[in-house]
């Protein structure tokens, strides 16, 4: 479990110098791309405190939201900002922060937005002894906002144990039906011989 220190650093910088591109790839505030900044400002303008901007890079924005607000914000992103589909839903396990982060990479087929990816991230409580589906590791599903997340969320549920409430079909997808171990993409699941 020693290789799992980074969550606080990854987000920590951002919370201290909020909106100043603390990510090491971006250099100065002047370099910030204008179009992406405007997109992020649209979100900040409408939701204010509910949104934390993680970074703004060329063609990439990442925002952090609480799970209570994610459906409302996702609806806004879908209807008003014209991001129409999800490219990926990634669960990331952070045992030391006791949370599982879920990142939705949202894309758009609109002409002016087609090079943009908006990463919408939220986090669920992590249980040390998981019982997928019946413990506190739960998030609201975005399936009614973005139809394309259906299989992605099913995968996230079996791989990390994040149960998506209001998802119509929370069954396993890739794992065997008789899988009895903990969700395999959690950091405490070790590969044999490594």
């Amino acid at each position: 479990m020693s290789n799992t220190q980074n969550k606080s650093n990854l987000n920590g910088d951002v919370h201290i110098h909020k909106n100043t591109d603390s990510n090491s790839i971006d250099k100065k505030e002047d370099d910030r791309p204008e179009f992406e900044t405007n997109l992020a400002n649209t979100l900040l303008h409408n939701f204010g405190e509910k949104i934390k901007i993680d970074f703004i890079k060329k063609n990439r924005i990442k925002v952090n939201v609480q799970k209570e607000n994610i459906v409302e914000i996702a609806k806004f992103i879908s209807l008003n900002m014209k991001f129409d589909h999800a490219e990926a839903v990634t669960g990331i396990d952070y045992p030391e922060q006791n949370e599982i982060e879920v990142v939705y990479h949202l894309g758009s087929y609109e002409d002016n937005l087609s090079n943009q990816i908006l990463a919408l991230s939220t986090s669920a409580i992590r249980e040390d002894d998981p019982t997928p589906g019946s413990d506190r590791t739960k998030l609201p599903s975005l399936r009614n906002v973005f139809y394309s997340v259906e299989f992605h969320e099913r995968e996230c549920f079996e791989m990390l144990g994040v149960y998506f409430e209001n998802h119509p079909d929370n069954r396993r997808l890739l794992l065997p039906e008789d899988w009895a171990d903990i969700p395999p993409l959690r950091k405490d699941f070790k590969i044999k011989g490594r």
């Binding site: 980074n6 990926a88 990634t90 894309g107």
Partner: peptide, 17 residues
């Protein structure tokens, strides 16, 4: 179609995710 890779690093030689 579109093929994406999401790589997270935490300062170690191996990717975190």
């Amino acid at each position: 179609g579109s093929l994406g890779m999401y790589i997270i690093s935490n300062g170690k030689p191996e990717p975190y995710r």
